[in-house]
Design a protein around this nucleic acid. Sequence first.
DNA 1: CTGTTAGCGCATTCAA
DNA 2: TTGAATGCGCTAACAG
Lengths: 328, 328
Amino acid sequence: MGDVAEAVGVSKTTISRYLHGEYAYMSSETKAKIEQVIRELGYRPNRMAQGLKATVSHMVGVSIADVGNPFSSLLIKGMQEECRARDVQLLVCDANNRPELECANIESLLDAQVDGLIVNTVGNNDAWLADFHGRKNRKPVVMLDRIMTPPTYDSVSSDNAGAVRSMLDHLASRGFDHVAFVTKPGDGISTRTTRRIAFEEYMGAHSMDGDVLVYDSDAHDLADRIKELLDAHGAEKVCLFANNEESMRDVLEATSAQTRERIGICAFADEQWAKYSGFGITCLDQNPVLMGRTAARKLFSRVYDGAKNPCSVDEIPTRLCVFASTQI
Amino acid sequence: MGDVAEAVGVSKTTISRYLHGEYAYMSSETKAKIEQVIRELGYRPNRMAQGLKATVSHMVGVSIADVGNPFSSLLIKGMQEECRARDVQLLVCDANNRPELECANIESLLDAQVDGLIVNTVGNNDAWLADFHGRKNRKPVVMLDRIMTPPTYDSVSSDNAGAVRSMLDHLASRGFDHVAFVTKPGDGISTRTTRRIAFEEYMGAHSMDGDVLVYDSDAHDLADRIKELLDAHGAEKVCLFANNEESMRDVLEATSAQTRERIGICAFADEQWAKYSGFGITCLDQNPVLMGRTAARKLFSRVYDGAKNPCSVDEIPTRLCVFASTQI
DNA sequence: CTGTTAGCGCATTCAA
DNA sequence: TTGAATGCGCTAACAG
């Protein structure tokens, strides 16, 4: 900036003013001259230096439970769209499904002077996150996909309960007698628990028969559990309802093609994926891009627009996509 | 930092020294005192301010052609692993498959004072990228997955040619007479071109019959093209070889289940995806996590370890995963 | 309309 | 062993 000022023959202040569009306090000749010199020198302001002075850095931090997950990548896509519009940079960290890393990520991001945080928590980290809320110079946080109860922060998630109900309505209409909700242990991950509870409530309220099948990471274990289930309910029309794509893959791994032909299967899963898996798997397609966008918007309104409203939870609707797997 | 200095009763210089581990110039009492006060106050150094002084910011920028792509998210996963080890932050931008955005991203990242860049180019941007190489204060760049010819920058890609050959060897061993390589137009994207050329060379060198089926984004168009192909080669054992997951989905969309039972199909695709698509699709599984790691390592060695070696291209091997779709 | 001054949080001489 | 002084690139009073 000094170089530009010198070349034009004015002070740095004037250059600074030019950069901020304060043309009113400036002769049109100097303005033109500055414009020209900046182009010639290819000058671009240093955002770090700006951030050092200002109270904002135009950077927001993101900690993702597992960036390798396709769902996560779509969350990021959504955030990016908003970031582009506001000219803010996204600092992305991966927590690799480990709470310690999530904490470390957040601390590092704060060191980098981010203006706010979007957290897709790994789960089992609510205590630390709640504690963080009590810090003096805390930065705004938006929880994404996986949320806390009560919602200490602004949050964005899918309408998980509604999604579960719409799937069960569909299964009922297709004449299924028994539905098993297949999931890994809750592990403090809100989506799993929310869906499971919605499932159990629906079962309680309707005359549908069903149970929850919690399995450990070992797919071998799952195969036995499914066999037991089918032994017990062999005569009925059974459907396996997987909590997510991972569990759906575990179900596919644990069942033979013959088995899959005589039972129904469905899952929370991306339509693109589900449509071509097997003969097509009926799924609840979430809207991760919209979720990411919404989270970014909420954060920006608080950080850059000074919104002071109490924190709220946005639930993004899901879409039921019916394919061959529930048509038996 | 001033607060800490005051509380301890020393100057900021001493605190700075403490933070950099220069304990030699310090009485053990002051050291202990500093340690304590820092903990009490929860002081953490401001990386922006450090970056303003130092020549490095401990941030690297990434521009991804399409962050929504699962492949991309695994590239990022790999980078993150290296970033964690070196304590550097990743600034991630999405180019949304548009060259203008890629350029804008890179400029923005430089404004943020990143120490270097990893670019997964959208394609058709080689001229700008080459021009960028000529800039005075250019920062180091590593091209990832999609590379330039000649390689102006350090680059990391899959061993695309080798992968194509291994797939064609496999198809030959399975007795296929005719193979069609299905791809969207090249569009300046190196992977597409490299694979296509490897395909054509193999066909030329072996007595295998085949052709390249370039289709536009419209899957309808593709259905007609495939029909023509099968009309012409109906008597032979035909295989469709898709350039990537997207084209594979387009092939699935464009063919009926009956058709798929009498032809072979295969693709460059993630094993997780391919294994459960249809009856299982034979695929070339790349190693995006390793690619991301490798790119980050190359960048870091240049940026932080002062490596001066000429730029090089690393080719990461792929893995052939055979499933039912090539067993007809 | 324009410039002077001071300072953001830190690292680095140089001196003591 | 420690500290004072200077400046990184930029912004924001406050003066003219």
